[in-house]
């Protein structure tokens, strides 16, 4: 449906923001571009929308090469972080704007505007001006305005960033429901990993203008393939090691004086490879005595965090954070053992 091929974008001559960039979004799919600010996700979306000049490569929508086609002829619906409603027009006029441009008859216009407003739960507010609406309502108008033209492709650029936390979760669900109901192919840009995981069919993690990893939300969350994705997905702890043995479904990693078993591995690792081992703070355990897959540690600090207790611990492998359920045995400052389940370790080449 949307195909980006070997795209290159330069804001400054010779300094590419995107380079050799490939991305495919399938019919009816919602793909989110996830990454920190400056990673090129918004640039990608703006290139698809036609607002940035490309320095190379090709963008096709439904098989039509749109690389050199102006934004108004691309047949896309675009939702901005700022909503970008027309302040001088009423809600009805805002939503009807794209239909007017397409020379839809007045009668059909009002029918489709009503329908779109019903879809986003804004019936009866058509005569208001954007300034008379709350942020959430404005965002709904922006959505209605983008989908009423039945675009081939819907682009959303951080649509929830200006809303407060509670509203954000509600709107997220609504956007997803709307997208599935209309089965419109959608590209969604966000810097919020939880949002991306919740809303997407597929998540594309970007960094420095390149794609780090692309996969289902579960794959991205559970099996990060690069240190960047692991960091971004909340793997708070890591240490360095060397692969000492490789079995069919298990991996042995030597780190400092300890040997760890790990059951997953990304990429093809061989004995002798230098690796990073990542684990989440909530997937580790503390023990009073040595157990398999454990390392002696020194508990430095314990903090109460409501439903969890967080420990800061020091070991030969470095300093780690461990979060244990609030109802478990508590550990005081002093020696203990950090026990790591083989399933919870992510090993990736250094």
């Amino acid at each position: 449906m949307l195909k980006i091929n070997d795209l290159r974008v330069e804001y400054e001559k010779g300094v590419p923001t995107l380079d050799h960039y490939d991305l495919t979004v399938n019919e009816g799919e919602l793909v989110s571009l996830l990454g920190p600010s400056g990673c090129g996700k918004t640039t990608t979306l703006r290139a698809v929308a036609g607002f940035v000049d490309t320095a190379g490569g090709q963008i096709t929508i439904s098989g039509r090469d749109v690389t050199k086609i102006p934004p108004n002829k691309r047949d896309i619906g675009l939702v901005f972080q700022s909503y970008a409603l027309f302040p001088h027009l009423t809600v009805n006029q805002n939503v009807a704007f794209g239909l007017r441009m397409r020379r839809v008859t007045k009668k059909d216009q009002s029918k489709r505007v009503d329908e779109a407003l019903r879809l986003v739960d804004l019936e009866g507010l058509g005569e208001r001006r954007p300034a008379q609406l709350s942020g959430g309502q404005q965002q709904r108008v922006a959505l209605a305005r983008a989908v009423v033209i039945e675009p081939q492709l819907l682009l959303l650029d951080e649509p929830l960033s200006n809303l407060d936390a509670k509203l954000r979760v509600n709107m997220r669900t609504e956007i997803r429901r709307l997208q599935q109901r209309l089965s419109v192919t959608t590209l969604y840009v966000t810097h919020d990993q939880i949002e991306a995981l919740a809303i997407s069919d597929r998540v594309v993690v970007m960094n420095h203008g390149r794609i780090e990893q692309s996969g289902t939300p579960e794959e991205i969350y559970k099996q990060p393939q690069t240190p960047f994705v692991a960091d971004f997905m909340g793997f708070e702890n890591h240490f360095a090691g060397t692969v000492s043995a490789v079995d069919t479904d298990a991996l042995t990693v030597q780190a400092a004086d300890t040997t760890f078993q790990a059951s997953q591995a990304s990429g093809d690792l061989r004995a002798g490879d230098e690796v990073w081992v990542y684990f989440r703070s909530e997937s580790a355990q503390l023990a009073a005595d040595a157990v398999p897959n454990s390392v002696p540690v020194n508990v430095l600090l314990r903090t109460f965090q409501g439903n969890a207790i967080e420990y800061v611990i020091q070991s030969d492998l470095g300093e780690f954070k461990v979060r244990l359920p609030e109802d478990q045995v508590r550990f005081d400052a002093g020696p203990a053992y950090l026990s790591l389940n083989p399933d919870s370790l992510i090993v990736m080449p250094k």
Partner: peptide, 8 residues
Amino acid sequence: EAARSLGA
């Protein structure tokens, strides 16, 4: 840009 994307 919103106007442009809507076909203007």
